[in-house]
């Protein structure tokens, strides 16, 4: 079990308002699964992703990652787990405009202090695999949306993470480019990477093994699309 949560809570408080973004969420994700999270805007999908991605702290409940309770770990430890085990893909790509495609993909390897020679080999492997080798020295703004998202996916997987968290990865793409990205994610999943993806699109969600539907901070239904092997 890569992820297990037990009554996970996330409450945002301001001076006047208290918003319950996650309300006692119980969730289990096995290694190798491709899980899609769906639900209307404001239902807590992105909050769930942020908490599971250790970007945000839960307010209550337990969160076990790879069997280790990480809900209350100090930030340094959490970021250490994050940079070695997690990859993120965002709707708006979040590539660094000043870095080339190669440098963007290389970035997570710098955080984990991989030697330069190994970095080069690993990045070139991915450039090859994502069909963007000819774009290696281009800057993100010189690429199409689909190509940018493929670079973002490459950056997410370069460290060979156990889990990829994708927040509406096709939200800013046309259908052809969206398909390409979904195919890339499916291929990664087929190679054994666990994926948790938030999406509004039923079509994209069906690329997964399981669809979780959320409403008002709670998981309301779970459907198995196809049996996870």
């Amino acid at each position: 079990m890569i992820i297990r949560t037990n009554k996970l809570m996330k409450i945002y408080r301001t001076d006047e308002v208290e918003t319950t973004a996650l309300n006692e969420v119980d969730l289990e994700i096995k290694e190798g699964e491709f899980v899609a999270v769906m639900g209307p805007s404001g239902c807590g999908k992105s909050t769930l992703l942020n908490v599971l991605g250790m970007i945000d702290n839960p307010t209550g409940g337990d969160y076990f990652f790879n069997g280790e309770e990480i809900g209350q770990l100090p930030e340094r430890k959490r970021s250490n787990i994050r940079k070695h085990n997690l990859g993120f893909v965002f709707q708006s790509f979040n590539l660094i405009d000043e870095l080339t495609v190669f440098e963007n993909i290389e970035l997570p390897l710098l955080y984990t202090q991989v030697p330069a020679a190994q970095r080069k080999v690993r990045v070139e492997e991915l450039l090859e695999g994502m069909n963007i080798m000819h774009r290696r020295n281009h800057f993100p703004q010189q690429l199409s949306g689909g190509q940018q998202q493929r670079v973002a996916v490459a950056r997410a997987v370069v460290n060979k993470p156990k889990l990829i968290l994708a927040d509406e990865p096709t939200g800013n793409l046309d259908s052809a480019n969206g398909d390409e990205v979904m195919k890339t994610l499916s291929d990664l999943n087929a190679e054994g990477t666990t994926i948790l993806m938030v999406t509004h699109s039923q079509y994209c969600a069906e690329f997964g093994n399981r669809i979780i539907r959320m409403l008002d901070g709670q998981v309301v239904t779970e459907n198995v699309v196809r049996q996870y092997l």
Binding site: I96, D97, E98, L99, E103
Partner: peptide
């Protein structure tokens, strides 16, 4: 070095 690279290019 990366930070400087980003800063200078920016």
């Amino acid at each position: 070095r990366n930070f400087f690279k980003i800063a200078i290019r920016n």
